[in-house]
Simulated assay, not measured.
Amino acid sequence: MNYTRQPQLNPISLFIILFFSLLLVLLLLFGWPHYKVWKQGMDGQAALAEAEQSKMIQVQVAKAELESAKLRAEAIKLVGQAAKDYPEYRKQEFIGAFGEALRDGRIQQIIYVPTEANIPIVEAGKQSAAQ
Rank of each mutant, 00 (worst) to 15 (best):
G41I: 00
V37E: 13
Q6H: 13
A49P: 01
T115L: 14
V79E: 14
I57S: 09
I107V: 12
D43K: 05
S128F: 07
E52K: 13
K36N: 10
S68V: 00
K77W: 13
D43M: 08
Y3P: 08
A82K: 15
F94P: 00
S68C: 03
S68I: 03
K126P: 02
P11F: 04
E52C: 01
I110F: 01
Q109D: 07
K84S: 10
W32S: 10
M42W: 14
F20M: 08
K77A: 15
A47T: 01
L102F: 05
E65K: 11
H34N: 06
I17A: 09
I107Q: 03
A64P: 05
V25R: 04
W38A: 07
K77T: 13
I57E: 15
Q58N: 06
A64M: 10
N2A: 13
G80W: 00
A82D: 14
A46L: 13
E50W: 09
E88I: 11
E88N: 03
I111K: 14
E123Q: 08
R103Y: 03
A97W: 05
P114H: 03
R103K: 11
L18T: 09
M1F: 11
F98R: 01
Q53W: 04
I121A: 06
L71F: 03
K91T: 11
W32F: 15
L27V: 02
A124D: 11
L29N: 13
G41A: 08
E116A: 05
L26N: 08
A73F: 11
Y86F: 08
K84Y: 06
E52F: 04
P120E: 03
Y86M: 08
V25G: 01
I107L: 04
Q58T: 05
W32H: 08
K36L: 15
P11K: 13
A97K: 11
L22F: 09
L71M: 09
W38Q: 10
I12K: 10
P87R: 05
T4D: 12
A124M: 08
P87V: 06
G31N: 12
T115D: 10
Q6P: 02
G125H: 15
A124W: 06
P87N: 04
L23S: 07
G80P: 00
P114S: 06
K55C: 00
L66N: 13
K84P: 01
L9V: 02
R72M: 14
Q45E: 14
E52V: 04
P87M: 09
K70G: 01
G44H: 11
F20T: 03
I121P: 00
Y35G: 01
D43P: 02
K55G: 00
Q60C: 00
A73R: 08
M1T: 02
A117P: 01
K77D: 14
I76T: 08
D104Q: 13
L18H: 11
S68A: 10
L102Q: 12
R72P: 01
Q45R: 15
L9C: 08
V59K: 15
I95G: 01
I12D: 12
A47D: 05
T115W: 00
A64N: 09
Q127F: 08
E74S: 04
P7K: 09
I121Q: 06
K126Q: 08
Y89V: 10
F20N: 02
